[in-house]
């Protein structure tokens, strides 16, 4: 059999539960990629997208059993080869995860994009110290987006609010718990946007952005640019009739967490300088109109406080 580790049924002969769950998992279906963008399209365009774009592009790299446990998946036709000769590898996050998540998340975590490494990496933690096997293999439910998965890592799983040693940290957390994600203050940067490597769509070279979460308008958080522009799918004959239905920025779990950042050190960085916040000036030109809803202007702290 050619590439036996790509055959889910074959693996399922010995690992039936994992294989059954995996078949419905987001890693295997990659349906999240489709659902993240499909609302931009009319019904007719969605059909074309499913046939011409999703199957040939999004689905082309994800993800058989062997793509994580035996070899690097072929991305853009390029494979980095076997992980450990012909041996099956249970986990080796620097390869099994980083082969696919090595464009942004993994180097961001290890600090290769600048600044410090994530504090969890500094303490020797790897991907699966937070992300569970069920999360990666799926739990048997056919989720449509990763946000639907309830059993995802949360900072508060380990860091219980109210148990901070320092009063300033306790007060800071209390003040911001309803309106800012942990990432908003504790992402150290620098992180890399798609545009930092993939030019061509825009002249903007944005870096670190904070703004209103498109999924929770009461919360500010770190935003990552989604590099879909109006003519992204033009070669497939898709005009994106409803382009403005979705923003070009999604809330992003930045994997570069530090106890201290310039924002935790100094309130004025956000409340006076608004450093790193999405603004009219930094908004992608010609981008979706709903992006305007993500611009947030923190208020100065009253002197009495």
């Amino acid at each position: 059999m050619k590439r036996p580790s790509n055959n889910l049924s074959l693996c399922g002969e010995c690992h039936p539960e994992i294989a059954a769950n995996y078949k419905k998992s987001l890693h295997y279906t990659t349906i999240g990629q489709r659902n993240r963008v499909i609302r931009r399209m009319s019904a007719d365009e969605a059909k074309i997208f499913d046939e011409k774009v999703f199957e040939t592009s999004c689905r082309s790299c994800h993800a058989s059993c062997g793509d994580c446990h035996v070899k690097s998946p072929a991305i853009g036709g390029v494979s980095l080869g076997l992980i450990s000769k012909h041996k099956f590898v249970r986990k080796d996050e620097g390869k099994t995860c980083a082969y696919c998540h090595g464009g942004r998340v993994y180097p961001e975590y290890t600090g290769e994009y600048g600044g410090n490494a994530d504090v969890h990496y500094q303490k020797g933690m790897m991907c699966m110290d937070c992300h569970t096997m069920d999360e990666l293999h799926g739990d048997g439910k056919a989720y449509q987006l990763k946000e639907e998965v309830r059993d995802r890592p949360r900072c508060t799983d380990c860091h219980e609010p109210g148990r901070e040693n320092k009063l300033t940290a306790r007060v800071g957390h209390l003040k911001h718990s309803e309106n800012a994600s942990c990432y908003a203050c504790h992402s150290a940067g620098e992180y890399r946007q798609c545009f930092n490597c993939h030019g061509g769509h825009s002249e903007a070279k944005p870096g670190f952005y904070i703004g209103t979460s498109p999924r929770n308008h009461r919360e500010i958080t770190t935003l990552r640019i989604i590099p879909t522009v109006r003519d992204t799918f033009k070669p497939a004959g898709i005009q994106q009739a409803n382009f403005d239905a979705l923003p070009n920025y999604w809330d992003s779990p930045i994997h570069n967490i530090r106890k201290r950042t310039e924002r935790t050190r100094n309130c004025d960085v956000c409340h006076e300088d608004r450093k790193g916040f999405l603004t009219m000036e930094t908004l992608l030109k010609g981008s979706s109109r709903v992006n305007l809803e993500l611009i947030k202007k923190p208020k100065p702290i009253p002197v009495s406080q």
């Binding site: 080796d92 996050e93 600090g111 600048g114 600044g115 410090n116 490494a117 500094q122 020797g124 790897m126």
Partner: peptide, 22 residues
């Protein structure tokens, strides 16, 4: 961390270079 996990001097702790220089 990945290199440390693959094999290190017995008893050594890991505090990788990026902690000391940024």
């Amino acid at each position: 961390v990945e290199d440390y996990n693959a094999g290190h001097v017995p008893g050594a702790i890991n505090v990788f270079y990026g902690v000391w220089a940024i």
